[in-house]
């Protein structure tokens, strides 16, 4: 059987990739994709912890994972709408060029 550590390591790796992408990329769409990676890492963690945890019958971890998936979908829908709104008026999705508000 695959040990719990393997799942956690995979999740940590994916989460780090996502976090790096979210902090390093200046393209709003790429940042959105990076955030999705982070959320997927969270889901791997949740399901792995549920599978190896003490209370397997209460399904808390799996339930949480399903909520995360549903909420992430809503979040992306709103996020893309905001990106499109910006793109229509500014013709760019690069955050360095979206700089009306600063100081």
């Amino acid at each position: 059987m695959v040990p719990l550590q393997a799942y956690l390591t995979l999740a940590a790796f994916i989460f780090s990739c996502g976090l790096y992408g979210a902090l390093a990329r200046r393209n709003a769409i790429a940042m959105l994709m990076a955030v999705e990676l982070m959320l997927n890492a969270v889901n791997i963690n949740l399901v792995a912890f549920w599978r190896y945890g003490p209370n397997r019958e209460d399904l808390a971890g799996q339930t949480f994972a399903i909520f995360v998936i549903a909420v992430a979908a809503a979040e992306v829908a709103v996020g893309l709408a905001l990106v499109i709104a910006i793109y229509r008026s500014r013709k760019t999705v690069y955050l360095d060029e979206i700089d009306l508000l600063q100081g």
């Binding site: 976090l19 902090l23 982070m38 959320l39 979040e75 990106v83 009306l100």
Partner: peptide
């Protein structure tokens, strides 16, 4: 529009980090 986008991008990253912490509490 810019206010909404900036809020969203910070918020999405912060909430993903919060979730990652919650999984370890669980």
């Amino acid at each position: 529009a810019e206010a909404g986008l900036k809020y969203f991008l910070y918020g999405a990253v912060a909430s993903a980090a919060m979730l990652y912490g919650m999984t370890f509490v669980y």
